[in-house]
């Protein structure tokens, strides 16, 4: 039980990569990549969790109250924002691919031309 959150992170990464490898549609592929990336949120937050601890926000609670690790939470915040903007960028590329090649199937897109 105590390793379940870590196992979840591993599962999300592997299942997301499976989706990327077998994808037949670029938008689906980008979503699978996001699934794989969300494993990092689970891992970071799971690492920073402490039993019976509160959020690291000392408004209204005395200093010294047992709190979770703020560093990994800050990292996760960064992670989420980067993930969203990269998602937007990749979707924009997918739009461009469709305009140029008329398909979103990665297997039907011809090799990169110089």
């Amino acid at each position: 039980m105590s390793y379940l959150p870590y196992a979840l992170a591993v599962w999300l990464l592997v299942v997301g990569l499976y989706g990327v490898v077998t994808s037949r549609h670029l938008v689906h592929l980008v979503v699978c990549l996001t699934v794989a990336q969300s494993s990092t949120y689970v891992l970071l937050l799971a690492v920073g969790y402490r039993k019976h601890a509160t959020a690291p926000i000392f408004k209204g609670i005395p200093l010294g109250t047992k709190a979770t690790d703020p560093v990994v939470q800050a990292l996760t915040l960064t992670d989420v924002v980067v993930s969203v903007t990269v998602l937007a960028l990749l979707l924009a590329v997918a739009v461009q691919v469709y305009v140029r090649e008329g398909t979103l199937d990665p297997d039907e897109i011809p090799a990169v031309r110089g």
Binding site: S2, P5, K51, V71
Partner: peptide, 8 residues
């Protein structure tokens, strides 16, 4: 460390 036992 087991879930909930981290002492970074």
């Amino acid at each position: 460390p087991a879930f909930g036992d981290y002492h970074g």
